[in-house]
Nucleic acid binder design. Structure first.
Length: 810
RNA sequence: GCGGGAGUGGCGGAACUGGCAGACGCGCGGGACUUAGGAUCCCGUGGGGCAACCCUUGAGGGUUCAAAUCCCUUCUCCCGCACCA
């Protein structure tokens, strides 16, 4: 029988399962290592080849760390609440729990067939009441801390999903999930005060070993701006309004103000002459989707209100306009416009012929032509004249504060997290509304608050979830006062379950608490977190927020949940395009496995290129790793007509010093490469070593074969186990000791130097590795090709680079 | 527009801190074994030239004994953000 993954692989998968090889426990004698994959949403389509990329990388790390003596936590679970299962239920009437269970079974079978070393005893599912019980419990902690509040607020509403969305899910006015348009709608909401943690969410990024791009995305999403709020009085009225500006130094150049069309003051200050036009504009704005409103190319629009404000610095009256380029939801919903020094204000002022003043010197053109938004020196600014921008800012902020006309202020782009979904398939929010009293938490003893059975999953579209239709569930008595009460009928967003799953993995079967303190302490932060970059500002921001709240409550011992983050790059289709059903370029891992086996699949995905890079799939490329595995097989087998003959191994030392050297160099390289997640170059090194071992006559020395198999094991665990057992080991190699290299054995005893003359390689000389610089120089100059080129001339300069080359300059 | 990343053989990709560009693999060419080969093994494989040699890391310039790597200019592609005052 030649190398046959279809018999080897299931055998070892059963072996691992039967023996619970990868079951993990806290072990005070060992150092811990927590390596986590972002758990998947178990969709109906099953795994595609993108999933196993990150999973394979983390599995290689987990397996090698185990062999290096770490207690390794490497779990897997299911992020199973969410819309697809619910939409399927609406169409077919199948309960989402049933669909979810089927999908989970498929995913699990596929993951097992890839030989991942998960501790399946720790499997969790966010839709399991024993899990969401604790999701609800954490929500109550937030509620108790005043971090959850109810509000009737204009929020992002997806027309096709018929649910409200968080800001993070509606980027660019488009629904993150379905791509449909998002409109503003006033809906009663539960909202989490993530903004209270904005500064810490920024500051603590500094200590994390994350891709710089993800940190930048989070910083920009939080969008901290320092500046001042400035009070403008409305001329001839007792009304006043505040604006937020990052450039208080330009206040002398504020020649008009703009309110967001939705601003409450608009109603009161609009003059009767302007009333009709203002009303028309506000109506128009309301109808515009966010998408249309943020359309960048559009010319700015706006309407004069007929009212004037008083510039607190100049005392002059400036017109108040409304325009949709000012957002109601940011800052104070009102701005002072400084057209001389702001691009947007400049465009607006030009269009509506509003005055443009220069108050900061530094631009290359007159401000009437081109705004200058950089720093400079103040002019035409009264007491600020002559001050550089940074000082002028400070000076003006101070002046505003002493005059009672403003205060220093910080504003964030980040909004509080809209946490309600008007859908069925999510965690019920464990709150009740008691008549005459208000909102009360469901007692912890009553958790989990189970999702009731419903007849119709159809979202109502009215802003109520399908739960609202179940009278028996909704209408209850307040357990404290006995008064009539109604249950909260909104459910939580899908992000809730994933906000803390990494904590539950530490103690997944705990029935008394979400996790024990001992388990939490032992496993600490996730040491390596592997997943897609698409969660950069969603899951990764939300779970950091929850984690910090839990930290403040003394429930977790670290400030941050994920110490090191790696984003695997997308695998494209063979056509170089993103894999998608509609393009028909989706590769199904089941098909690949059938033909080449899991080991070849794993090797191939890792060999493709750097983990983080986007790279195209090429099914033909699988031949390389597959052939490599066959060659590994043949290190111990001889092919013959009636099946392969096992060759065994020989005892005694490695006779060939070159082979020993290659072995130790490879141990070093593979160990380092796994550490840096450079799996592609590690595999290349293993291929080279295989070639060297193949040149040693059979039976090949155990001393050479064993370490090779151990190095191979994290990458191709099935074949490695098979061969390991064939050379006489009764136990799995999963905990065998990782090979250690001997630095002395890594060094060559002679080195080839390239000899360059004027930068061109003209000769090669081989010199003993311990030769000194002078000896190397002499050997280089003595090379016959060099002597003829020199033709008796004396070189101007000779440079010796140790171990590399001799450079002769004529 | 702003921010980030990347351009290396026919293809995926290697190259430590500036030190022999093209590791490893795919593909391709030749050969061996074979009834057969789309299996396996061996040899070759950046381009040009009979050769000595010359050219080659998106393009152009520079620094250096030496540049894929550092500096300047420029082009292209990918990702993120996008009226946030």
């Amino acid at each position: 029988m030649p190398y046959d993954p279809s018999t080897i692989e299931p055998r070892w998968q059963h072996f691992w399962e039967r023996n619970k090889t990868f079951r993990t426990a806290e072990d005070p004698a060992k150092r811990k290592y927590y390596v986590l994959d972002m758990f998947p949403y178990p969709s109906g389509a099953g795994l595609h080849v993108g999933h196993p990329e990150g999973y394979t990388a983390s599995d290689i790390v987990a397996r090698s760390k185990r062999m290096q003596g770490f207690a390794v936590l490497h779990p897997m679970g299911w992020d199973a609440f969410g819309l697809p299962a619910e939409n399927h239920a609406i169409k077919t009437g199948t309960h989402p729990a049933l669909t979810t269970a089927q999908n989970v079974a498929t995913f699990k079978r596929q993951l097992k067939s890839l030989g991942f070393s998960y501790d399946w005893d720790r499997e969790i599912n966010t839709t399991d009441p024993e899990y969401y019980r604790w999701t609800q419990w954490i929500f109550l902690k937030l509620f108790e801390r005043g971090l959850a509040y109810e509000a009737l607020a204009p929020i992002n509403w997806c027309e096709s999903c018929k649910t409200g969305l968080a800001n993070e899910e509606a980027v660019g006015g488009v629904c993150d999930r379905c791509g449909g348009p998002v409109v503003k709608r006033n809906i009663r909401q539960w909202i989490l005060k993530i903004t209270a943690y904005a500064d810490r969410l920024i500051e603590d990024l500094d200590g994390l070993d994350w891709p710089e791009s993800v940190k930048t995305m989070q910083r920009e999403w939080i969008g901290r701006s320092e500046g001042a709020r400035v009070i403008f009085d409305v001329a001839g009225s007792a009304e006043r309004f505040e604006v937020f500006t990052t450039r208080p130094d330009t206040l002398f150049g504020a020649t008009y103000c703009v309110l967001a069309p939705e601003h409450a003051l608009v109603e009161k200050i609009t003059s009767s002459a302007q009333r009709a036009e203002v009303d028309r504009y506000r109506e128009e704005t309301k109808r515009k989707s966010d998408l249309a409103r943020t359309e960048l190319s559009k010319e700015k629009t706006g309407v004069f209100t007929g009212a004037y404000a008083v510039n607190p610095a100049t005392g002059q009256q400036v017109p108040i306009w409304i325009a949709d380029y000012v957002l109601a939801s940011y800052g104070t919903g009102a701005i002072m416009a400084v057209p001389g020094h702001d691009d947007r204000d400049h465009a607006f002022a030009t269009r509506f012929r509003l005055p443009i003043l220069e108050v900061v010197k530094g631009g290359s053109k007159p401000v009437a032509e081109e705004p200058y938004s950089g720093d400079g020196v103040n002019v035409a600014s009264g007491f600020l004249d002559g001050l550089p921008s940074s000082e002028a800012k400070r000076c003006m902020a101070h002046w505003l504060e002493t005059q009672g006309k403003g205060v220093r202020a910080i504003t964030y782009k980040l909004r509080d997290w809209v946490f309600s979904r008007q859908r069925y398939w999510g965690e019920p929010i464990p709150l009740i509304h008691v008549e005459g009293i208000g909102v009360r938490a469901v007692p912890e003893s009553e958790l989990p608050l189970r999702l009731p059975e419903v007849e119709r999953y159809q979202p109502t579209g009215t802003g109520e979830s399908p739960l609202a239709a179940i009278d028996s569930w909704v209408n209850i008595k307040d357990p404290v006062t006995g008064r009539p009460a109604k249950r909260e009928t909104n459910t939580m967003p899908q992000w809730a379950g994933s906000c803390w799953y990494y904590l539950r993995f530490k103690d997944p079967r705990n029935e008394r608490e979400a996790w024990s303190q001992a388990a939490e302490r032992y496993w600490g932060s996730v040491d390596l977190y592997v997943g897609g970059v698409e969660h950069a500002v969603l899951h990764l921001l939300y779970s950091r927020f929850w984690h910090k709240v839990l930290f403040d409550l003394g429930l977790v011992s670290t400030k941050e949940p994920f110490q090191k983050l790696v984003n695997q790059g997308l695998i494209l289709g063979e056509d170089g395009e993103k894999m998608s059903k509609s393009r028909g370029n989706v590769v199904n891992p089941d098909d690949v496995l059938k033909e080449y086996g899991a080991d070849a699949f794993r090797l191939y995905e890792m060999f493709l290129g750097p983990l983080e890079a986007v790279k195209p799939w090429n099914t033909r490329g699988l031949e390389g790793p597959y052939r490599f595995l066959q060659r590994c097989w043949r290190l111990l087998h001889e092919e013959s007509r009636d099946g392969d003959k096992f060759l065994g191994v020989s005892d005694g030392p490695i006779a060939d010093p070159a082979a020993a050297r290659k072995l130790h160099q490879t141990i070093r390289k593979v160990t380092e490469d796994i550490d840096k997640l450079r799996m592609n170059t590690a595999i290349s090194a293993l291929m080279e070593l295989q070639g060297v071992i193949a040149d040693v006559p059979a039976p090949r020395p155990r001393a050479l074969v064993e370490p090779f198999l151990l190095l191979l094991a994290p990458f191709a665990p099935h074949l490695a186990e098979e061969l390991w057992s064939k050379i006489g080991h009764g136990e799995s190699l999963a905990y065998a000791q990782w090979p250690v290299f001997d630095p002395a054995l890594c060094t060559e005893d002679s080195v080839e130097y390239a000899v360059q003359i004027n930068g061109k390689v003209r000769a090669r000389v081989t010199v003993p590795a311990d030769a000194g610089e002078d000896a190397v120089r002499a050997a280089g100059l003595a090379a016959p090709e060099v002597a003829s080129q020199l033709a008796g001339k004396t070189p101007k300069k000779v440079i010796v680079v140790k171990g590399k080359l001799v450079s002769i300059v004529l």
